[in-house]
Structures are given as structure tokens and as C-alpha cells.
Amino acid sequence: MSATLLAVQALNGLQLGLVLFLIAAGLTLVFGVMDFINLAHGVQYMVGAYLAVVFYGLTAHFGLALLLALVAALVFGLAMEALVYRHLYGRSHLDQVLATFGIILILTEGAKAVFGPAPLSLPRPEALSGAIPLMDGFGYPVWRLVIIGAGLGVAALLYGLVQHTRMGMQVRAGATDAEMIGALGVDIRRLFMGVFGFGAMLAGFAGVMAAPVFAVEPTMGDGLLIMAFVVIVIGGIGSIRGAFLAAVIVGLVDTLGRSFSTDVARMFLAPAAANDVGPAVASMLVYVLMAGVLFWRPQGLFPARAG
């Protein structure tokens, strides 16, 4: 276990965390501001990736495909809001879970019907397809650094928007008491639509950025959605800063856990038992972390009120 390997794994954890952040940011805003549980948020990520594949097929240019996919993801999010989600705001969480779970099933099967069940792929832009050699015979793909950069950029942008604009102020106020800001004359419906569309676009953006690394398939968002929920629970619901910090923590814990849990287990156990215990513990780590947070700090590590 060399220092280089540790550094590479930390970089990997950061990158996973930032992809999680792009998804969790929209999720935490929608949940925090609108008190709306959107299970279908992971599907927006899948839609973003498929849109990028389609637009790349049409334009053969990654930048153009990214731009078109972002616009389309935004339009798609707004359309979903107007058609379905708007009618669920006042309803109980159970109704919302049921309805958005239905959306997952419909869109997942829809994607399968249109594009087929086999995974698709999106090539990396030629200029960013190299790898930076870190260890002998192993390079860190430039595209992953781009993902890290994009995640940090979005985090900075969101911080600016939420902390220093009028709309951001309304969003923060909405996270505290949505009815009150409605009473103060803010058009809540427009605010909700804006937040929702923006969240959908962020998830779509994550899908586009991840598509050159991960397989584009109908269920690609399911696993990440669960991780995103873990992130917003740990970070504190409605808090962008919490989502960012928690995403990085979850990314690091998950990646370092996967990398080194078997080694750690081998210090105490026979190799065969360590091979059984290591991966099992690694897959539980983030959930154990979440359970701990829920027990000692149920409002999350960085709750919305503070940030």
C-alpha cells in the first residue's frame, strides 16, 4: 500500500464524490425547498446520458452534444414538472414516492424500448482522451480530471447563486419555510419550477459527463440515486454546502473502503475469510456512516439553516 496508490485512490474518491454531488445538489434542493421526494431524479441522469448519445450521433461533436443535451434535459425536467410533479406538491410523501417510482419504471422501460437493453457509449472528446501517467503502467484519465473540474465549477457556481443572488435568497428562504415566502409575495410556483428545472439539468449534466466513463444503460441512475439520498441525508436536507461536503465524504469513504477494506481485514483474519469480509464491509460503509449521522445528528452534518 504505497503513498502513490493512496493518493490515486483519494483522487478516485473525490471524482466519485463530485459526480454524486451533481446529482445530489438537485435532489436536495427539490426535497429541501419543495418538500418533494423525487425518486425519479436518477432517471434524469439517465435521460441526460442518452440525450448526449443521441445528439452526439447527430452532430459528432462532444461540446455541441453537451450543450444540446443540457437544453433538452432542462426542457424535459420542466415538462415533467408541468405534467406530473406539479400535481403532487401538496400530497403526502407516500403519494410522491409512489408516483415518482412509477415515472422510473415508465422511463426506464421507455429507454429500453427506444434504444434497446444493451448498453451504449459516448466517446470522450479527442483532446481530452489521454491519461496522465501516475504509476508505472497506469495513468489517470484526463477526462476524470475534467469531471473533477466540472464538479468543482458547478459547486462554485451554485454557491454564488444560492448565497449572492435574489433567487438564491428565495431558495434559501423556501428551504426554511416555503409557505411564508409565498405569503411575502414570492411567486412560489415559478420558484419551484425554476428549482426543479435547474435540478433536472444538473442531473442531466452529470449524466453527460459520466457517459464517457460509464455504460449508458436504462438503469444507470438507480444505484447512484440511492447514493445521492445517502449524501443528502448525511449533508442535511436542503443544504447545497452539506450536499457538497457529504458527497466528497461519501465518495472518499466508499472508494477508500473498496480499495483497502480487504487489506485491513487481512490483518485480523485468514486470507479466505478476509476475502469474504472485506468486500461485504466495504459495501456497507457509507450506510453505516449514514446510520451514525442519523443517530447522532439527525438534522445532517451541515443543515440548511446554517448554510
Binding site: 496508490l5 474518491g13 471524482q15 466519485l16 504509476m135 497506469f138 460509464f214 455504460a215 444503460e217 480499495s259
Partner: peptide, 30 residues
């Protein structure tokens, strides 16, 4: 699992003569 960067870094650090993978479906694509 979607992201294998941690496992691949580990493989590189072990410097084997070859890698054997059983990774069906989308996992294999990744």
C-alpha cells in the same frame, strides 16, 4: 458497481502478468 478506478489502480500497483475479469453486462462495459 459502476466505477472501477479504485480496483484498476490496485491492479496496476500489483503488476500482474495478466488480469482475469468476470464482469457481466453493463458492469463489464464500465
Amino acid at each position: 458497481q459502476l466505477d472501477f478506478s479504485a480496483e484498476l489502480a490496485r491492479v496496476a500497483s500489483l503488476r500482474p502478468d495478466a488480469v482475469y475479469a468476470f464482469m457481466p453486462g453493463g458492469m463489464g462495459v464500465n
